[in-house]
Simulated scan of single mutants.
Amino acid sequence: MSAGKLRNSFKGAASAAPFFPTLLDQMPNAIVVFEAQNQQLVYVNQSAESALDLSRKSLEGQSVHDLFGENEALASMISEVSHGHVATQRQEMLLHSVPGSIHQGTVPAHVVIASLEDPSLIMMEWFPIDQQLRSERDERVTQQVEANKQLMRNLAHEIKNPLGGIRGAAQLLEFELSEKGLHEYTQVIIKESDRLQSLVDRLLAPHRKAHVIEAFNVHEALERVRSLVLAEFPKGLRIIRNYDTSLPDVMGDREQLIQATLNIVHNAAQALSEEIRLGVAQIELKTRVARSVTIAKHRYKLAMDLHVIDNGPGIPEEIIERIFFPLVSGREGGSGLGLTLAQTFVQQHQGFIACDSRPGRTDFHIQIPYRKQEKTS
């Protein structure tokens, strides 16, 4: 059924009916409309496209069963409504995601099945019930990370001055020492002081440099990241492009967002050492447009959605909740600053960064709002 036929199928107020699908497109929750008899989809709103990670065109001809598989609770709700026993059914359940979706596995969701004025059509609406919990968790983590970053910046400033004095004293001592063999010890002091100075500089770096705001193509930035990482890991690693080329340009600091993504992709490549040795390592760079998103309690119509997905061993459970904290690293010899800096850069663009990890699949998710194209509420 075409969109035009669908509009004609919605009955009710004559003036409002033609615009009903347009209104549904503005709804933040995922909504699909399907035929009661064969459950074939006739309409999918924009939020459902985002939730299913599939376009309307690719969803044409599919049924509710194709999307969510065998689900007795869902089938029972549809049956009750389609047979006219009730007008609306609401229930919390586990929805199995469509194959190929970025949200693999099951999603705890609140599902609403409702009849329409046209008895041959049924509407299904759903939203993740952990959305509010996730929002509260993200806000709490952001506050904790910000407190830790403030502490680290204060410590960095406190360390910086005496560190310079230690290095200078070691240089003077080396100059005064007549026995050349003792220079080995002063060199240890100087080199370790330089290493700590470099660490301090990295802690302070995001707050020293002014933003250079410009419009840029995110895929050009990702191609730069891809070429840099592949130059370091030329064998055994595939970096897969999964780009939505219709994405508009992002307004932001191009170099900062390149650095943020590079830190994530480089960390992923280092974690894939065993997979690289076996020649099966892969990192996927996936871009999409996200609609009707909420970031830090602000609502945006559109956002750039970026996923960095690898097939590595996953992040250890004991540090997964702290990976964005300064000096937390799951890799021996890691500084624990790469993800902290990535989060800082993303947050400076009013975006968010999150991670979902399990053995065989780690997904770093970045969203940057298109601030010039929408209002916040």
Rank of each mutant, 00 (worst) to 15 (best):
N29P: 01
H266Y: 13
A114M: 14
S58M: 06
R56Y: 05
K191P: 01
E284T: 15
L228S: 11
V33L: 02
Y43D: 12
V328Q: 10
Q367I: 03
L121E: 02
H157Y: 11
F324E: 02
L230I: 12
S47Q: 13
L41N: 01
D53V: 00
P313D: 06
G279I: 04
Q39W: 05
D25M: 03
Q348Y: 04
D363W: 02
Q62Y: 08
Q89N: 05
S377W: 10
A87E: 12
D201K: 14
M251E: 14
E332F: 07
A169D: 05
I368Q: 09
P206S: 13
I213S: 12
G181S: 15
E317W: 05
F364M: 03
T22W: 10
D53L: 00
Q171R: 06
D310T: 02
N217H: 11
V188N: 08
V188Y: 07
G165I: 06
C355I: 09
R90G: 04
L133H: 08
V265M: 00
A205M: 12
I240N: 13
N217P: 03
H211Y: 08
R90C: 02
A170H: 07
S198W: 01
V212D: 08
K235V: 15
N242V: 06
T245L: 12
F19I: 15
E332R: 13
E232A: 11
R254P: 05
A147R: 03
K209S: 09
S335L: 15
G164H: 08
G333K: 13
F19C: 12
V293R: 02
H349V: 08
Q91T: 05
E158R: 09
S273D: 08
V212K: 11
Q347A: 15
P313N: 07
P206A: 12
R241H: 05
F175V: 07
P108C: 04
R241T: 08
D363T: 10
T88R: 14
G69P: 03
P128G: 02
L121V: 00
F233Y: 15
E174H: 13
Q46Y: 01
F20P: 02
E174C: 14
H85L: 11
G330R: 08
Y243N: 02
K57F: 07
E317M: 06
I113K: 03
I353M: 15
K297M: 08
Q40M: 10
L247T: 01
Q132K: 09
Y43R: 04
R167W: 09
L230K: 10
R224E: 15
S227D: 08
I283D: 03
E179M: 01
I213F: 06
V280C: 07
P326W: 06
